[in-house]
Nucleic acid binder design. Structure first.
Lengths: 228, 228, 228, 228
DNA sequence: GATGAATGAGGCTTCATTCAT
DNA sequence: TATGAATGAAGCCTCATTCAT
């Protein structure tokens, strides 16, 4: 299945004496690629070691376990994503523009760092173990960012507990929409990033609208048909 | 040593002579639960067999392989979901109401058949093998349904190729929004299904709006701020 | 690996009420074919049952075990071979002609009953278990027939113990030559059976010659080059 | 329960840090013995590992699979046999002497390396898979050597296509005779190797004679009785 | 005379992980 | 800083065989 590259026979190039941080970087790069390509469970330390041109004991010396290696990958990609989102959404701009900028930045991240993105997304739904937690908490972080944007853009005092839950819901829905669109987009590059962002923004604006209604009046349960 | 929880001594009740279709049902039930709880890779045939109170060879006799068992689970849950969606969205109603009914039905499905839903969602993003394919094709089916709703609700002839791609994108975004909201909702049952559906519908309406613009005029790239 | 003919799903034609001896015959035919094609170990009762259009319990009712089924196959083929050899080598003819007739009959048997032959030969060399014994004893029987032919054709009283061992050796060598030629011949049918028999006979005559020398004088250890 | 022969408790001496080539040798030795004793299918990796005082994963790391381990055994024994045959049959000697030397060397090989020989012979006839192929191709190699000896000893230009096939047949017959005699001989060591070789040589000389006739004139179909 | 349902046992293979240098 | 050698545990799968009708 893995070609003929038996991990035992793999001729190692034998780069020795590389300083630790650099090696860690190399390893994380490869690990990210492999995890993205195969998913956590199906990825094997053997393959990662072979592709990183390093022996397994070294990986264990540096990362301790497969799980910790995986977490390190997620962390790296996740922190980068968060940082880019933060940097892109300067607080002085109007909320709607911040959202737009964030969405665009997200799409760029996905585009540029396919592997990083896939590793984040691929196990997003996997259950069990502490693996899911790591990813889930990242989604939570992004959802929180979105929620803040939604809330702030309609500043009318503290939302009620019920309204707060609904805001959470909308945020998660929006995050999911972004993920799903991003994944579809990876397979359909004919759509320009700006246009893809537009599509998402349409949903975002709907979210803001919804949020506005929710925080102002008790939202009507059956809104009249807007297409009328 | 006498601990009855020894995995090697797993107590089998030993119901014998059960007709095949019934056994298959039992097994699928259990398998769905286990796959949902652990994910495909982490689930073990041993655990499924033990919980189904059956020996592994029987499962292999009936389903052939772990993968085929998994596919059977997906198929069952997926077909049920699709059927319910189709039944819920009677073609005579206005598009927006059909969407609303579909969304509601989806949430009910998720609520009633947590396992069925989780098994569908859990590996949605996993890479490799025919496993992802099965799930992906199901998503595609749902996305197609959504797209049809979006398109029909704005009847203005054939969309251009570019517009068509955008409709695809919106549909997938919407599907992702629904999945994500559903998953969040499972952990936050304080929100009533009707309200959750409302939240999604807000996004859906935005999608319709977007679709309307796209199919009528060449959509303006930078729509004016709706909050103004 | 076995096409899609899962033994569980195989639609049985459902011939019921067939008298036992006939069913046994059918089963033996199929079993012979399968054993010949796959070898004893690789052949599975499932496949035999499926191909014989019978359920496994029936085979067990009739033959008791896989091993006994195999032995039955060997026995049937072996007895037939021995019977044909005996019938072909009428005792009144000169020894050399009897040998020739036997060789020819053997080749005909191999030709007509490929499966029967293969099942005899295929495990001829396998070690372990009582399986090898069955085949080995058959070879022994044939070797003894050969030896008798060799001995009788050079009647000069009782051979010494040492000479007797050598006669055994020659006989086994001749049997092996026949088997090997037969197997080669199956893949090279361009050679007519009569001609193949001729080839073997050349070796046989050499055996007789050797036997003659052995039983008459003390055979010279280094015979002069006959090509000179 | 405290029986030390519990297969689950198989005492491993635990020699660690043995260089790979040496371990490979040890493993091949054991594997050859086990394959020879049980045949390919009946041999179990568990037994081989236990007898080699090594764990299974090591064997898999070094050989990849049961089949490849088997092939490695065959290759080693086969290459040794071929090498010895080549070394023994120096090209300067007359053909008949080369044949004699080869036969003797073969018997010595069988005698000294019982296991090596048995592993070569045991599955000689087994059907299916690449296992048979490996052995078959070795037989072919030996048959070719024999054929060359037969052909060269009767130098009369190119044989016709028909004659060529017959030469092939004779060669295979001779190979089979040798195998069979060798196997019989292993159980009857009272015969000295030189004498056993003599027996085979008698057949060999017959082969040469036959070859001579074939390549000179159109061989008579019914040669007169040589015992006359 | 025949079967659908079921199992105990065991085989091959792979994986994450460690030891000793 | 790095590795060659090695393992415990567990997973998937298949097989010959039986029970109950």
């Amino acid at each position: 299945m893995l070609d003929s590259s038996d991990s035992r026979t793999a001729r190692r190039a034998g780069t020795r004496g590389v300083p630790r941080p650099i090696r860690e970087g190399q390893i994380l790069d490869v690990a990210g690629r492999v995890f993205a390509a195969r998913g956590y469970h199906a990825a094997s330390m053997d393959e990662i070691a072979a592709q990183a041109d390093v022996t397994k004991p070294l990986i264990y010396a540096y990362f301790g376990s497969k799980e910790r290696l995986y977490v390190a990958c997620i962390e790296r990609a996740g922190q980068e994503l968060l940082a880019r989102l933060r940097a892109a959404t300067v607080p002085t701009a109007p909320e709607i523009e911040r959202l737009h900028a964030g969405v665009l930045e997200f799409l760029h991240f996905v585009d540029e760092r396919r592997d990083g993105w896939q590793v984040l997304y691929s196990e997003a739904a996997a259950r069990g173990g502490p693996l899911a937690k790591e990813v889930a908490s990242l989604r939570e972080a992004v959802a929180k960012m979105i929620k803040r944007l939604l809330t702030h853009s309609t500043n009318r005092g503290e939302p009620s507990a019920e309204t707060d839950a609904e805001l959470d819901g909308v945020s998660h829905a929006f995050v999911g929409a972004g993920e799903s669109l991003a994944n579809w987009w990876l397979a359909h590059p004919e759509l320009r990033a700006e246009r893809a962002a537009e599509l998402l923004m349409a949903l975002g604006r709907a979210g803001v609208q919804q949020a506005t209604e929710m925080t102002s009046t008790q939202a009507p349960r059956v809104p009249q048909d807007p297409t009328r």
